[in-house]
Structure formats: C-alpha cells, structure tokens
Design a protein around this nucleic acid. Structure first.
Lengths: 336, 336
DNA sequence: TTGTATGCGTTATCAC
DNA sequence: GTGATAACGCATACAA
C-alpha cells in the first residue's frame, strides 16, 4: 500500500533515488542506500510492477501458449520454459488452448494486452494467422513443437517427427508385421501429419503401399485413442500392430485392446510416440520414440530471450532436434 | 502500438469516449460506437492492460500458488481454478513452489508486485507467515487443501484427511493386516500429518497402538515413496500392508515392492490417498481415498471471487469436503 | 451523450 | 551522487 513517494519521504530523498536503489541502477552512496532500505523495510513497501512496466515498456514476462498441459510431454515443456526463463529473471504465464484455434486467439489477445515481452506458441493448427497477429503488435514470438507453412517468417524450435515415426514402423515391419494401423492426431497439425508421413515412408519402402484404410486421424487424447482402436479392430483383416501417434492415444489404444480381450504384445503389437513420465509409471512398457521435450523448450526460450536482447541473428531460424527410439515389451518379438 | 489517443483522433472523439465503448461503460450513441469500432479495427488497436489496471486498481488476475503441478491431484485443482476464474472473466497465474517455503516467498513477492487481485495458496508449510504477508498488502487470500494453525484469520477450503485415512487403514485391518506401514509426506504439512492421525486412530481402535516404528515421513514424491518402502522392508517383522499417503508415494512404493520381488496384493497389500488420472492409467489398480479436487478448487475460487466482490460474510470460513473410498485390487483379499 | 482535467506509481531525461 | 520534471496509457470525477 505504501508507494515509492512514502519511502522517499521517510528516507529523506527523492523518489527517483529510491528507484535507483531498488533497481541497482545508477549510483548511490552507501549511506543513502541504507536509509532507503530501512524505509522500505519499515513501510513494508512493495514496488508496483504495473507502473514500472508502463513506464519502462518491459514486463519481464513471457507467455507459453500450448494445447494441453495435462499431457506429460507438455508438462515437461512447461518446466523447461519456466526454468530457463526464471534463470533470466523472467516470469512465465501459461495458457491452455485445448487444441482450439478460438481459445488460442482469445488468450493471445489477452497476452498482448498484458504487454508480455515475448510469446512461445504451440499453435493449435499449423496456419499462420496467430503468428501474424502477434507479429503485427511487435511482440517477438517463437513457435514450439510444430511446423508452420513454408515462407512463414518466424523462429521455430521443434523435434524430428518423420524420422521417428519411420523408425518405429520399420521396427514393426522388421518383426514381421504388415497390417499396421496408425492412430494419429488432428489433421492440419504438423506433428500428426508428419508421423503419418514417416509411417507411409516405412510402409512404402517395404512394398506395403496400400495403407489408406490403416490411417486414422483424431485427437491427441486418450479418448480418441480408445475410439479409433475400436474402429480399427472392426476392419478385416485385423491389424497385427498399432502405431499410436502420441502417449495418450497409446494409453487409450491399450485400454481398448484390453477391453477387446487382446493381449499386448502377444495378440497385437504396439509402438507409440512420446514416453510417459517416470514418476507416474510403474512398468515402462511401451516401445516409443522419445522427443527431447525439455531441451526443445530450453532452446526455444533461449532463442526468444536472445531476440528480446537483440542478440539473435536477424534471419529466422528453424531448429530441429532428433528423437530417440526406446524398445520395450509392447512391440513384442518377431513373428513368422 | 496504437494508443487510445490514436483511436480517438481517427474516430473524431475524445479518448474517454473510446474507453467507454471498449468497456461498455456509460452511454454512447450507436453512431459514435460504430465510428470508434471502425477506428479500432483499422488501427489494430490493442488496449494496454497495464495502464488500465494502474488506473482502475484491478488487474482481473488471480494467482494459484501450489507445490507441484505435475502431481495429477494439483493438475485437477489447477483446472478447477482456471475454469471457475475464467467464467468470471479472470485470468489465472500459476506458480510451483516444489514444497519450498523460500520459493513460495519469492513467488508471493512477485505476485504482490504484479498487483494480482487475489491469491489461492496451497502453503508449502502449515505456518502463518505467507498468509500474513499477503494480508498485510491488503490482498485477499484463500488457503487451499491444507490446514492453518488455529486462530489464523483466513478462509480455508480443503478436504477431509483424517477420516479418509482412517477408513483406508480400517479396511486393511478388516482384511486381517496388523503390520501396516504408513508412508507420509513432510512433517509440518497438515495433509501429511492428518493422514497419519487417521492411521493412528484406526490402529489404536484395533488395539494396535505400538505403531511408532511403522510411521515414515518424507516427501509427496515417487522417489520418496520408493526410498521409504525400501527402508520399511528392512524392518522385522516385515509389514504386510502399506498405506501410501498420496498417489506418487504409492507409485514409488509399488516400484520398490516389484524390485524387491514382492507381488501386490498377494505378498503385500497397498492402499493410497488420491487417485491417478483416468487418461494416464491403463489398469486402475489402487484402492484409494479420492478427494474431490475439482470441486475443492471451484469452491475456493468462488469464495475468493465473492470476497473480491465484497459479497462474502466478513467472518472467515473453513470449508471441509468429504473423501470417497474406492476399493480395487491393490488391497487384496482377507487373509487368515 | 460527450468532454476536460487530473492522477494512478513508476522511470527516462536532463540538470545540478 | 542526487533531484526536478515529464511522460507512459488509461479511467475516475466532475462538468457541460
């Protein structure tokens, strides 16, 4: 409730001097500093960041807009952003869009009004509208995890998706599978589409090009994984293996298979993108492609901070990090 | 980049008129409104919330300070707060303290500087310092999930802990167990302590009062659950059942038991507080006491919003919600 | 229905 | 090393 004026009066100095002491900017004598600090303590003065930011045009705040923070992959991303930003003295605001473009627009509107210094965006759809809107207001933005249409002028930090999917499916093929269904996320989301591209590459390479009926698009959720699996099981010939395009789809699929009385990997094999967090899992079971989520988040945040500091090269960058395959039980043994 | 002045000039009105149109406050003619809205669209004007809040003394922002958002229980809490606040037109800022009082203080300092309208606090320790600090700045606060020392003047919304623990342990006793170890969270955290109180009640009631060696305090984490379980297994006579004071401890315990070659519930029974989220689990396996996390968060947020609106009774409230027991496999069958 | 004057709490700028 | 003045962009109070 006390303002910088009250502190100044009590310390017998001008407000600007208090400001200098608080911000360690400019010069101040030992004596002045001590008197000011005493006054601050006595009055329990708390600086008003609204006023400070209004004047200085910096909020020291970044925003992370993503689709679903309950997805462990994004929980890790959030940690990475928070840790990196925090080390640089920045606060992070988190926003969940639930994969909805409308929600995304609403949040971005609010964030721009709040004058955040920069935005990290996992776009709900791989279209340029949101990025354009942010750039129009002069706010730096880095796209995270997903591609943008070619020629979109924006920094991107994401992971390899085609290659990881290709490797997973190739693994299944190597074990003797031919009827491999892929359960993916939404169309128009680059990660969902790229994983299907990787799948197709592996299948085509093995001479299995007639795969249209084996490709399912849905959402990156457990419910979608469950539903798509039930659908996939009705088709003849039944798939002998399933590639789930993310961890939640994988869990839904596993549940659906159990409910259908099928054993994994004995009756049907499975692989999936994204691992589950170690602290929530008792048996690591899925064969997966793991993305370096924390690293990706860190890199993206560093790039954004560099832009804010005017230290990054003018040219936009696209950073792509590799994925790693971890083989566990769900993919099973070779069949003949 | 455009300000309210630019819009006013373009629309041929005074800035205050633009303000009125934006905020739907006061009167404005159809004609003026249209001209202003056109100017806003043309200039792509985004109102500056810093300036607005500085003047109006309201930020329309709440803060939720909790210990670990990766814990599914708190993820649900966060959703409940966000949904409720959002419906009322408020933005929510989330902060993770990792159960550290130092982190908590740091975050609270920043939040007060940012002039958040109200704070929802899951205190890292059940001590009154943080609450006092917030109240000193005149910011409304509601404590979530945990008790405060008696006579702390603050609103609290939490769940029943003693009763749930009592029921879980009674269930184990009813199945024939006598050597029941309890793996709890940190001392000085009311939920950790209350669950031990409930445990003691059930044990004492069954004439099993010599339990000191069966009580373990640690952290509410998977790692702590793992470590405490290993420790508990070295004691003779070995426990025949384990009560994990939360879900993460439960998972850690299960892992440790598996690593020790023990089968649950055949060799050793388990129960735990807090369920795991349905979208991350393939076999619901644990017998648990479930807290209505979402409801709790909603109630707390509503109470805080009521205080902000000056609608709540002056008297501080303590709302306590009941827990529900769900029996699954981990607790096993009766033994003789 | 619209406008004028003023101040929110801080810091940039320039002066001493 | 310290201070006076003005300005950031908006909304309150009052006037017209």
């Amino acid at each position: 409730m006390a303002t910088i004026h009250d502190v100044a009066k009590r310390a017998g100095v001008a407000p600007i001097t208090v400001s200098r002491v608080i911000n360690h900017s400019g010069y101040s004598s030992q004596d002045t500093r001590e008197r000011v600090e005493a006054a601050i303590a006595e009055l329990e003065y708390v600086p008003n960041r609204l006023a400070r930011s209004l004047r200085s045009k910096r909020t020291n705040t970044l925003a992370l807009v993503l689709t679903d923070i309950t997805n462990p992959f994004f929980t890790t991303v959030a940690r990475g952003v928070e840790d990196t930003a925090s080390d640089a003295g920045f606060t992070v605001v988190f926003c969940n869009t639930d994969e909805s473009e409308t929600e995304e627009q609403k949040y971005l509107q609010v964030l721009l009004q709040q004058q955040v210094d920069g935005i990290l965006l996992v776009p709900a759809r791989s279209t340029p509208e949101s990025v354009e809107m942010i750039k129009k207001q002069g706010t730096p933005v880095v796209v995270l995890d997903r591609k943008m249409p070619p020629n979109t002028e924006v920094d991107i930090v994401r992971c390899e998706n085609v290659e990881g999917a290709y490797q997973l499916v190739k693994l299944l093929i190597g074990l003797g599978h031919q009827q491999i269904a892929v359960l993916s996320g939404p169309k128009m989301v680059s990660t969902a589409e790229d994983r299907v591209v990787g799948y197709r590459q592996a299948m085509t390479e093995a001479g299995l090009s007639d795969v249209t009926d084996l490709i399912y698009y849905g959402a990156f959720t457990q419910a979608s994984g469950y539903g798509l699996t039930r659908k996939a099981l009705t088709v003849q010939p039944q798939p002998t293996a399933i590639f789930a395009a993310n961890n939640l789809i994988g869990i839904g699929a596993l549940k659906a298979l159990q409910d259908a009385g099928l054993r994994v990997p004995k009756d049907i094999a499975m692989v999936s993108y994204d691992d589950l967090p170690a602290n929530l899992v008792t048996f690591p079971f899925f064969t997966v492609a793991v993305q370096p989520a924390y690293e990706m988040a860190k890199k993206a945040t560093q790039l954004l901070l560099a832009r804010l500091a005017g230290e990054a090269p003018a040219q936009c960058q696209e950073v792509v990090l590799p994925t790693e395959i971890i083989v566990r039980q769900s993919s099973g043994q070779a069949r003949n």
